[in-house]
Amino acid sequence: MYNKNNTLFIYCVFYFAFLYIPVLLLPIFSFNDSFHMVFPLKGFTFDWYIQMWNKSRLHQALFNSIKVGIIASVVSTFIALFAAKAFTRYKVKFHGLSYGAILLPFIIPEIIIAVALIVIWTSMGLKLGLIPVTISHILFCTPFCMLILISRMEGFDKSLEEASMDLGENSFWTFWRVTFPLLLPGIIASLLLAFVISFDEFILAFFLSSSDQTLPIYMWSQLRFPKKFPHILALGAIIIIVTSLIVMTAYWLRNLGQGKKKDFSIGI
């Protein structure tokens, strides 16, 4: 009955084009020998990639982004691991309330969190910079990591832990010999995806970073100057390729050993 539907298929192809053209445009223009992003293409050049190497502010911003990304992804994965364990293992009282509270930062407009944090931070007389940015990224990534880990843990067969206890291991060794290795793909996926989210995050960093630019803020500051943005295109092309690889690895890990389970509800 559901064998073929050409109309729908053609529609899907068009939608694919709609999705991908804006993304693929940037890498194409990053090799174009012109300051203007206009068709037809002028000529092929590596100049913008070479230029990128000489921008010390870019290097600083990249370093800041990686630093924030690593701290945010590790901390939020840890926090999320405990929370996911609590929700999957115990019948938590006020389940809906605590679950909703933890997911909230993911749903409400980021600008509101940014405003709230800038207000409390400055009213405490603290200096803005990478610390509030990191805190806000942890807040923003944790619900995400939790959803990934919960779906991993729900597919987890509790009797495996029981089998380990039954074969003589205590809870500590059961965790290290059974639980952790089985959750590891989910944990790594959570680390990778949280890193990508933090690395890409703009609005929180925009409000809270002050002069310590992260990479998206650096790119934002360069977009206004036509002479400067070709090297942003080169940077963008690299970011697109690297994040795509990271995300595909994460997707692959998330489904590793999950058999034919097809739960994409948190796959975003």
């Binding site: 926090i79 509270a101 709230a116 944090l117 409390i120 009213s123």
Partner: peptide, 20 residues
């Protein structure tokens, strides 16, 4: 197990929002 996540939400979201 939930406390780190709840502390995070309380101190990094709820409290700032109240101050806001």
């Amino acid at each position: 197990l939930l406390s780190p996540a709840l502390i995070l939400v309380i101190f990094a979201m709820a409290a700032p929002m109240i101050v806001m």
